[in-house]
Design a protein around this nucleic acid. Structure first.
Lengths: 345, 345
DNA sequence: TCGAAGTGTCGAAGCGCTTAAACAGATGTC
DNA sequence: GACATCTGTTTAAGCGCTTCGACACTTCGA
């Protein structure tokens, strides 16, 4: 194992000089710097993480707490996790993966052990139990998801209300009058996931403003569930010509079911999906979608936590930022003008 | 911050005694143990991770290297990552997430810095560049995926050859004579991903033994690609009645396309998917599938790396294990007896 | 009864790094 | 020419933990 002392000896300087070259915290002459750097290269030196964390009281690790639950679309989680990891590396940080099932105790563990300098929490609920722990222990954190009361923490999320509103606007612009919102399973609403509630609210308000009649139906994304949901919608409101789907799992079944009910997309029915572009393009016809960047979400969370860690390290009070990312509507082949005549069952 | 000295003072013992109570490495009287443990509870003590790593030369962290590439089905990656994290916690370990794009340099970094006690590598290629680094530096590792030459490292993987063979057997048992294997995109084959090659070989050999005529067609999983692939298969071999799909993205399109070509599944065509049970059950009809447990993969990898870390810590030479998990065929509604008459275009 | 062996606890060294303080030498100021 | 100032480097004191060796005391066998 190569230590800082080995590098110092090799370069003919003291180990503190090596440390200062590496951290840049003191002025070092160009010549010394060069010698040290080439010794580092030559010996393949990497500072011992434990020793560094102990001495500097900073681990250069951020913890990322991911949900175990699967009612969130998994590829999006993964995309965020990867974006966080990549962004963190650019700050010289590594990412520790911990799961939601550790709950508030996990947050306490990470904070008290100094394993991580900060936490990024995913899938934050409106009234999240982990937040008070964070606050009382003074653990630096960035939340992906917007709780009711972020109280001093930084948060970033998609602007789901805007996403919902974009869907309503697009359908209204195309002349639809009766639309249906196919949401997540009821469980997602009862546990108060912000994204589900906010999308629905944003959609509902804009729909009302635009004079759209609409129904909201929860749907857990299986084929059967989607079939039941669609059947109910068409029975209650046979004039429905616009569909907004938020549950990714329901998209495929919905398209199949519309087709087998004799409805052509987009001539007879328009479909907007709230999902990743990649997924929207996988269907036939390609789906008009409203999409936010999962990567951006991860990247912003990392920037936020880095600023907080830096501030806290300098003895300043970290500022609590609140960022909402604007989603985009991409028109593809699944939406079109509302049919002139009534229903066509 | 509460330290071991605080606990010692509170319990009226020396800090080394506290350490021994926590690690169990020396005999401690029942009474002392009780006192220490209740002090730990009361003060909410968590050992400082950096200090512990430095003194014990063990970080209690394993690194998990995940691919950035997206041609592997993402939910499976995530499932493995979660299983690894959960299993590691049961050994008192945490998981550091690093991405494949750091490559061999990343492996070196983790090894040299002592950040992690061991590495779990996902998506290991047949001739993986990271393996020689692991070997030369003596870094403990468990591979998920079976390379050509694991040389001293532990590996675990699904028995993909067996998975392929199960598909061939099932179709042969049902009386099919002409079958098609819809694989991953060509890129997966050219970079020698073991899972793709081994499944195909296992399928091909068993198909030959059972007197099946078969074609293999790569497919990158988009709707267009699947349409092209299916069209070619039906043009070349109109008598084809059995389909094996490995690319998860191609499943939905394939079903839609078969239906629109007038083929009813399973009456006119049988479809077997090589995918998670959860996914197979999401389609209509529910798909007969061959599935291996992603969770088990992660769990076994953790067990392997833990055994290696323990052995290396005790100065022993770790044994290189090689485990293949047997996949299971689950018959659902997408496979049935081969149609009696010829094709039905 | 004595030495050997076993049990339970403590003291202190040291893991590899950071950083405050000290210091040596060059440079500038009046 | 004496002093302050700046630049670049070193010395040394920890950071909080583990673990080796020492030690006090008990138990056992001869």
């Amino acid at each position: 194992m190569v230590t800082i002392a080995d590098v110092a000896r090799h370069a003919g300087v003291s180990s503190s000089t090596v440390s200062y070259v590496l951290s840049g915290k003191r002025a070092i002459s160009a010549e010394t710097k060069r010698r040290v750097e080439s010794s580092v290269q030559e010996l393949g030196y990497h500072p011992n993480a434990g020793a560094r964390a102990l001495a500097a009281r900073r681990s250069h690790i951020v913890a990322l707490m991911v949900p175990l639950r699967t009612d969130v679309y998994v590829p999006v989680m993964m995309e965020i996790a990867i974006a966080v990891t990549t962004a963190a590396r650019q700050h010289g940080y590594d990412v520790l993966l911990i799961t939601n099932d550790e709950g508030p105790a996990g947050v306490r563990r990470i904070g008290a052990s100094g394993l991580a300098d900060g936490l990024i929490l995913m899938d934050v609920e409106l009234d999240d139990q982990r937040i008070p722990v964070l606050q009382s222990r003074g653990i630096q954190a960035a939340l992906i998801g917007l709780p009711d009361d972020p109280g001093g923490l930084s948060c970033v999320d998609h602007d789901f209300a805007e996403a919902g509103a974009l869907c309503a606007d697009h359908l209204a612009d195309l002349g639809h009058r009766e639309v249906a919102f196919i949401g997540y399973g009821t469980g997602v609403y009862t546990r108060h996931a912000g994204y589900a509630e906010r999308t629905l609210t944003g959609f509902g308000e804009r729909a009302e403003q635009r004079g759209l009649r609409f129904v909201h139906r929860p749907c857990d994304g299986t084929y059967e569930s989607t079939a039941g949901t669609l059947a109910r919608i068409l029975a209650d409101r046979p004039e429905t010509t616009g569909f907004v789907v938020q549950n990714e799992g329901a998209i495929g079944p919905l398209l199949t079911l519309l087709r087998s009910s004799g409805r052509i997309v987009p001539e007879d029915a328009s479909v907007i999906a709230l999902c990743q572009a990649q997924l929207a393009e996988q269907f036939a016809p390609r789906l008009t979608s409203v999409t936010g960047s999962a990567q951006e979400l991860g990247r912003v969370a990392v920037e936020q936590i880095m600023r907080r860690i830096t501030a806290a390290g300098a003895g300043e009070r970290p500022v609590d930022e609140r960022v909402l990312l604007t989603p985009e509507l991409t028109v593809r082949a699944s939406t079109g003008p509302a049919p002139r005549t009534g229903s066509q069952n």
